[in-house]
Simulated scan of single mutants.
Amino acid sequence: MTMAEARQQDWIGRTETRTGCLTADLAGMLAGALGHAAAPVPDLAPGAPMPPLWHWAAFPEFVPLSELGTDGHPRLGGFLPPLPYARRMWAGGRLRFEGGFAIGEALQKRSEILAVDEKQGATGPMVFVRVGHRIEGAAGGLIEEEQDIVYLDIPETFTPPRKLPLPEAPAFDERVVVNEARLFRYSAATYNAHRIHYDLPYAREVEKYPSLVVHGPMQASLVMEAGLRHVGGAPRAFRFRGVHPMFADEDMRLIGTRTEDGAVELCTGTPSGHQCLQARLEVA
């Protein structure tokens, strides 16, 4: 193990604890970002059930502007390790649910760095940081979550991943309009200043993307809502991973297929016919 790898491993086991709350105002902001023609408007009053995955907006990082990196993310070295890579992305995650949360309910989150793994990808070296979260509500609800955060270098030119075809004959296939206003609203609701989602010159000239990038968590929230609406029940487990960037120059398709074990295989896709985010939903 090199000295750099040893320093990376020193971050394993680091923890932080935070309190949070999805207020009615924040819930309204999320509803404005995630709403579309096929989805009913949720009850946003204090005490109403919190839609699944909306806890992602309940713990904003109030970092001063002076402590942001050039990409808009908080600078590394606080809770997350300061790795020498210019691009940082949320690559996927896994969640298990017990009960639920309410809008306005006090929440407690304990986070821990579980693993720091260096790998060789198609475009060069990358490091995956696996972060565990335990989110507990004052009324007894619980979410156990793991997030995979990937660090890698920015390439000189954008080389897209292999495009995976969309499922044939799905149980549902909905379309969501994607535009700059939706991306801005989701960034605002989640207090996410990563510039690839709203700053087109930065996305193109610095991070080498062809267009603005659609948030992975927003895709996950939209496709999970569609899955629950079509199959019913309460979420028991959910996992997702990005397989291709989604860009704001195409609308989003929400696609789901039932499996023999009662789960739902989900994906987001493009009208041109390839997957962007894959997911699996299990319901109780």
Score class of each variant (00 low, 15 high):
A169R: 15
K119E: 04
S187E: 05
L107Q: 08
A284V: 12
D173N: 15
V63W: 07
R182M: 15
L65F: 13
I154N: 04
S221T: 15
H274E: 06
P245G: 09
G242K: 02
P81S: 01
M218P: 05
H230M: 12
M252E: 05
D43Y: 10
A138I: 00
L254E: 02
E174G: 01
E260Y: 01
M218T: 03
L142Q: 09
R14Q: 13
P84K: 06
R75C: 12
M50Y: 09
M3P: 01
L80F: 14
T2F: 11
A24T: 14
A38C: 12
I149S: 06
G13A: 02
G99V: 11
L26Y: 03
A102N: 11
G93Q: 06
P160E: 11
A31P: 01
M1W: 11
L53C: 07
A102G: 03
I12T: 05
V231A: 15
L22C: 14
S111W: 04
R182D: 05
N179L: 05
E136V: 04
L83V: 08
V176G: 02
R7H: 07
A139Q: 15
L152C: 14
V206H: 12
T259H: 11
A6T: 06
R280Y: 02
P64M: 08
A102F: 08
P170W: 00
H73R: 13
R88S: 03
F101Y: 10
H230N: 12
S111A: 15
H274G: 08
R18T: 14
G32M: 04
L80C: 01
V264D: 05
T15G: 04
K208E: 08
G132M: 02
V283H: 10
I103H: 06
M1H: 13
L142S: 08
A284K: 14
P167Y: 00
R134I: 09
A279F: 01
H55T: 06
T23D: 10
G13V: 04
V131A: 01
A234H: 14
H36P: 00
I196P: 11
L22T: 01
T257K: 15
E16F: 02
A6V: 00
A188D: 06
G104I: 08
F79G: 06
G124T: 09
D43T: 05
M252F: 09
